[in-house]
Design a protein around this nucleic acid. Structure first.
Length: 236
DNA sequence: GCATTAACCACCG
DNA sequence: CGGTGGTTAATGC
């Protein structure tokens, strides 16, 4: 993990924010507030975007690439809570509570990350109805995803867990701009699902055989998202 | 039985 | 060359 960063120019940064639905819903004055304070940077694969137990100074968004939210124990074992694909915004929980971040944020692909300062986030929350609405929807959607995650983990067989974990990365409310070709290694998918790489490989090949996915080097292409979403749910 | 770890090797970039 | 993927064998619950 390194902290090497690559700041994006103001003009390009503005374009990035105009691509976000929540930003377009803001009044012009609030948009200006964001553009005056926000940052955007390119980070390489493996880079640490934000650290666990550090102050949550930013609300974070993904424009391109892929991030993961994970914690590591002293022996180096990791637990990945969530993958965040393009279009995803996260970290509002710790920003709202003004607490230390609860997990490490690590790039698992070269990524373009957007950062809204906590101060700006609180200003928007206090003065913008559209922004408040967005944050409520955001928290609500993610709560649903986490409850589904626990269900999946406890009730579904490994093949179905892989299918559901993949399908969650295509939640249109949380991650509106995810491409169907997902650049992720099978090892990272193992961390995300809590399964071994070998078992994930077996599940992926089964799902590919059934026509739901196409596998390539460092990439999983979803061919039938609806079937992937349904897969395994009949077990419940 | 089934998943995990460890190991091996081929292949990709 | 390092990272990734496909496979097998040994181990454990």
């Amino acid at each position: 993990m390194s902290d090497v960063s690559n700041i994006v120019s103001p003009a390009e940064r503005e374009a990035l924010f105009r691509a976000c639905a929540w930003f377009r819903a803001l009044a012009p004055a609030h948009q200006a507030l964001v553009l005056g304070a926000a940052r955007a940077e390119r980070v390489p694969d493996g880079a640490c975007v934000a650290r666990r137990n550090a102050p949550a100074d930013f609300w974070l968004g993904v424009h391109t690439g892929l991030l993961k939210l994970a914690i590591y124990n002293e022996s180096g074992r990791s637990c990945t809570f969530s993958g965040v694909p393009p279009g995803g915004w996260f970290g509002e929980g710790s920003v709202i509570k003004r607490e230390l971040r609860k997990y490490d944020v690590v790039a698992i692909q070269p990524s373009l990350v957007m950062q809204v300062p906590a101060h700006t986030f609180h200003e928007l929350l206090a003065s913008s109805l559209p922004f408040s609405r967005f944050v409520i929807d955001q928290l609500n959607n993610r709560m649903g995803e986490f409850i589904a995650s626990i269900q999946n983990h406890r009730l579904l067989d490994p093949d179905a867990r892989v299918a559901q974990s993949l399908a969650q990365l295509f939640n249109p409310n949380l991650y509106p701009s995810t491409d169907l070709a997902l650049p992720i290694s099978q090892e990272e998918l193992g961390y995300l699902t809590g399964l071994s790489r070998q078992r994930v490989n077996q599940a992926l090949q089964s799902l590919a055989d059934q026509g739901m996915l196409a596998l390539a080097y460092n990439q999983i292409r979803v061919l039938d998202l609806e079937r992937l979403r349904r897969h395994g749910l009949d077990q419940l």
